[in-house]
């Protein structure tokens, strides 16, 4: 039920609080959405197994923390490596044979759905589908902002981590030779290969980057919502964010994620928390009706 009977100062506090929550959630979406967009920009298909990489990263982090007693830095590092390796393996096993055989991206799309079902159910079969809470690795102590709003340290840390990782990605893309190759491949994969880029290595690298970013998002989502095999399903929202921003555009993915995170949290705070998921898909449908190529999309859909 809407809460309108609160006093004015309090509602301003809630507004600030929800904006910070929204930015924090949006930044986690951004880490995942960027992976979707990166893969889409090169192979022109939506990799629905992306949610699986996130779950793999989350579980590696959980088990390293719990069973090996390692610190968060080691656990995080291992989970990034593991999710990246899983992404490369997925590409080599399922996508490479298909893309060598045919140009039709529909087959890749369906294979990616198959892979997402496989990854999810490997966890269900081997370690069970119960919800697991990560140990307290990220502080969630409340921080008071001059008496007006109370925010969690966790939200600030996840926002900060997203900014750091996205900046690293941007540096890789702009400053390194392989970043240049990825940008060239996003422009045209075939021409990039004619220019002497090792396409298979490049695609593996892209999947590795997408997997590591998904894993960072996965750890933060696992802290926020606990860890379970179906956690990857939440990436559908990140996918929607990537579409709103324009599939294949990295700034678009970030902007779309922030919009979505804010919309979701403001709806939850001021209207009803049951409607927050509906708002996401409402945004998707509106985007497709008004501007189908997304905010930053380059390809204008051709009229039939």
């Amino acid at each position: 039920m809407p809460v309108f009977n609160i006093e004015r100062g309090e509602s301003l506090g809630i507004l600030i609080q929800q904006i910070i929550n929204g930015l924090s959630l949006g930044s986690v979406y951004a880490l995942i959405a960027v992976g979707y967009s990166l893969v889409y920009s090169i192979l022109m298909f939506s990799n629905f197994a992306h949610g699986g990489f996130l779950v793999i990263g989350g579980y590696i982090c959980y088990f390293v923390l719990k069973d090996m007693g390692a610190g968060i830095l080691i656990a995080g590092f291992l989970s990034l490596l593991g999710a990246g390796a899983a992404a490369i393996l997925t590409e080599r096993l399922a996508y490479k044979p298909i893309r060598e055989k045919t140009n039709n991206t529909l087959y890749l799309l369906i294979a990616s759905m198959g892979m997402s079902i496989v990854i999810e159910n490997i966890f269900v079969v081997t370690i069970g589908g119960r919800f697991r809470a990560l140990p307290d690795i990220i502080p969630t102590t409340p921080i008071h902002l001059s008496g007006m709003a109370t925010i969690s340290a966790f939200d600030l840390i996840s926002l900060l981590a997203a900014v750091v990782f996205l900046s690293i990605l941007q540096l890789i893309l702009v400053k390194t030779k392989w970043g240049l190759a990825i940008r060239a491949a996003a422009y045209n994969l075939r021409i990039a290969s004619l220019m002497g880029v090792n396409v298979n290595l490049l695609i593996s690298l892209t999947f590795f980057i997408a997997g590591t970013l998904a894993s960072v998002g996965g750890i933060f989502l696992a802290v926020r919502y606990t860890l379970y095999p179906q956690l990857g399903g939440i990436t559908i929202k990140a996918f929607v964010a990537a579409v709103i921003g324009g599939l294949g555009s990295l700034p678009g993915a970030v902007v779309g994620s922030i919009i979505l995170g804010l919309a979701e949290m403001l709806t939850a705070g001021f209207i009803s928390s049951q409607l927050r998921d509906l708002v996401v898909f409402f945004f998707l449908v509106i985007t497709l009706l008004v501007r189908p190529q997304g905010l930053f999309g380059k390809d204008v859909g051709e009229k039939v």
Binding site: I110, A111, G114, V118, N121
Partner: peptide, 9 residues
């Protein structure tokens, strides 16, 4: 579901 996904791939 595991088998179903694997068949699909």
């Amino acid at each position: 579901m595991l088998i179903y996904g694997a068949i699909l791939v």
